[in-house]
Design a protein around this nucleic acid. Structure first.
Lengths: 217, 217
DNA sequence: TAAATAAACAGGGAAAATCCCTTTGCCCCA
DNA sequence: TGGGGCAAAGGGATTTTCCCTGTTTATTTA
């Protein structure tokens, strides 16, 4: 670094203990200081319009109530494209990472990194405009692999509803009643999903749904 | 606080970003300062024997590789009972909280608290010797409720194995082969568990296992 | 040692899940 | 306008799950 600059950072995370702690840590980094924290996307919107100073960087959590990281990233890239958004999350699954990158984040960090990596990432973000960890690069490459690509998590509305209801103690007949469809249609959904996802039975479907965050425990 | 004392804290957490951040935060609290961090129980053991100064308080995460929070809490209460251990975890389920309290921790904090609550908890811990949040008190009361109590998560070795295998795509017949038991015995396990846990079918068992951390996704 | 207890195992039957194949109705478009 | 594609729905057979009721076997206890 030829000259000492002070870039500003905003942290968006609903876990206020983590956010406040991270704020202190980042303030010890020589080139960065935290402007403020926000509890979620909505909170961020309000604070951005209220505060007169715009941050250079936004550290964005994904799992948040009210307005989550996906919505927030989208809103940011549409309304404040000059702010560099860095996703900071526990989620390490391909779909989540890809989805965030598509929403325009400039990097994706896992929360279990070393503090110095965060410092590096912030610096690289300001110098080069992006930061891609090995994990993310791997994921990107992996997503191009046709083997994985066909296991597409692109579900129709009805399919998704069926999957979520299949993660309960309901029988298919009961699910059919709720979804206002014939049990045979439900059976069709089931059979099609089993083939596409290469699973053998309903337990496999439940595990798949949980692995891919299609439903909550 | 009549006089300003400086109590020492050690943080045990495998997420070094969180640990380092939290360290900075705690160092801003007037009565406390962090001695060092440890990545897990084993790391803590080494550092305790190496460093000459004992901490007053240990902030202990639960989910850690190598030596987790349960083992560590037990070791601490057996070998360093004078250190006050405060569990600090994301887990909010009754079983985990109770297990940690039984291992001798002096308090249980959820990671999604406000930073000021942590300050309060640390102060109260030194003044009174313990800190119990509302959440924990609720859980303690709840555990005394006979309605919940009979839903005991005390499983025999074979039952646990069966539950875990039931969370896969195997049929009961295949599970029987693996466990070297008759399919009828497996059916007996199943029937007994369904009755005890008040569940209707295998999906219910899978969801139960996941809710109670009996198996991983 | 006899009785009690609990785990392992079994028979039999109903319900649900799984599978394959076919039909119907609808929209699209070449 | 006549197929082609596709979601919805049905027929029917097999396997698996679920449930109730027992028997055998091993271990513990009185």
């Amino acid at each position: 670094m030829s000259q000492k600059e002070n870039y500003t950072v905003v942290i968006v995370d609903d876990h206020s203990l983590f956010a406040s702690s991270l704020e202190k840590l980042i303030n010890t980094f020589s080139n960065f200081r935290v402007l403020y924290n926000a509890k979620n996307g909505q909170d961020l919107q309000q604070k951005i319009s209220k505060e007169n100073k715009m941050p250079d960087i936004i550290l964005l959590d994904i799992n948040m109530p009210v307005m989550d990281g996906f919505e927030t990233a989208e809103w940011l890239s549409q309304n404040h494209a000059q702010i560099k958004t860095l996703a900071l999350s526990m989620e390490d699954d391909e779909q989540t990472i890809l989805q965030m990158l598509r929403k325009g984040v400039k990097g994706y960090l896992l929360k279990d990194i070393h503090p110095e990596i965060l410092n590096q990432a912030l610096n690289e973000l300001m110098e080069r405009g992006y930061y891609h960890s090995e994990k993310v690069s791997e994921t990107l490459l992996n997503s191009l692999n046709p083997n994985n690509h066909q296991k597409n998590l692109d579900f129709r509305e009805n399919e998704l509803t069926f999957i979520q209801l299949a993660c309960s103690e309901m029988t298919y007949k009961e699910i059919a009643v709720i979804m206002n469809l014939s049990p045979k249609t439900i059976d069709g959904y089931r059979q099609d999903l089993f083939k596409r996802l290469n699973i053998k039975n309903r337990v496999g479907l439940v595990m798949f749904a949980l692995k891919n965050n299609l439903t909550k425990i």
